[in-house]
Design a protein around this nucleic acid. Structure first.
Lengths: 66, 66
DNA sequence: CCGTAATGCAATATATATATTGCGTTTTCA
DNA sequence: TGAAAACGCAATATATATATTGCATTACGG
């Protein structure tokens, strides 16, 4: 499940570690979400958005595949 | 954690049961999400959005409380 | 170059999202 | 007004998101 976490994180000038610490999760969690191997929780998605100053649609929206 | 699932579901003319079935979860899951007692998964949020024809921001965005 | 920061990844443990079942209450509508 | 649909909710079981630790690899500034 692809998303734009990596792009927006880098644009915000943060490392995985820094983003993880600001949010209060581990670096691995961020890493796996960026890799599309995790299905994150809404709460975590929102925390990421707040930290990189984007919205859910910016970072996590995926068009429905028919 | 509040959201607009209930409003958008009703606008879409669906019962909890119908929404749950279309998505492939149980009615209880929908009920608890509407009540703000569950922290749903991104995948589930997207499935809800697709079904009610809204985006993540429409249904699940919450302004950051300072 | 070289060392250090940043990242990828694997294994196991823990927390929690979701399923399942069942029953009581409220709403809706003929 | 009464029966059926829709909903709230509780208890337990299961699946899976996240934590923890540790090590290997890659990118990058001095």
């Amino acid at each position: 499940m692809m998303n734009h976490v990596k792009i927006t994180r880098v644009e915000a000038g943060l490392t995985q570690q820094q983003l993880a610490e600001k949010i209060g999760v581990t670096r691995q969690t961020i890493s796996l979400i960026e890799k599309g191997k995790y299905n994150p929780t809404l709460k975590l998605c929102l925390a990421i958005c707040y930290t990189v100053n984007k919205t859910l649609d910016d970072v996590f929206w995926i068009e429905k595949e028919e």
